[in-house]
């Protein structure tokens, strides 16, 4: 059972501010969806897959190169070379 306070907690972790109406609706829907996801717990992996089968992503080496794109080509929030944001550190 997903309670409205659970939804608010996840919303805060997701940097989302929800209306009370949205919170109520999501609580109901998440209860149904999470109940469906419970099926995962019923699968006994011990019999199905061993540690060697853990999926590996075979990406190539991560090599650093200069970007062809600079922020002034896409950002409306630049102040000189910097992205302007609200003050983060309190004065004094």
């Amino acid at each position: 059972m997903f309670k409205p306070e659970d939804v608010r907690k996840i919303a805060a972790l997701s940097s989302l501010e929800l209306s009370d109406e949205e919170v109520g609706k999501f609580a109901e829907q998440f209860t149904v969806i999470l109940k469906y996801f419970e099926k995962l717990k019923e699968v006994d992996i011990g019999e199905l897959v061993d540690d060697d089968d853990q999926r590996q992503v075979n990406g190539r080496d991560d090599i650093c190169t200069d970007s062809e794109v600079s922020p002034d080509q896409f950002s409306p929030y630049l102040d000189g070379k910097f992205f302007k944001v609200p003050r983060v550190i309190e004065q004094n």
Binding site: I10, F30, F37, L40, L48, V49, Q54
Partner: peptide, 27 residues
């Protein structure tokens, strides 16, 4: 989707959902 994703990755639920889903994917 963002919230459900955040939930399945959150402490205490990660292994039961995301970890298990990846094992099932490998299988």
């Amino acid at each position: 989707r963002i919230m459900l994703g955040t939930f399945v990755l959150s402490a205490g639920y990660y292994d039961a959902y995301y970890g298990k889903a990846n094992q099932i994917r490998a299988f």
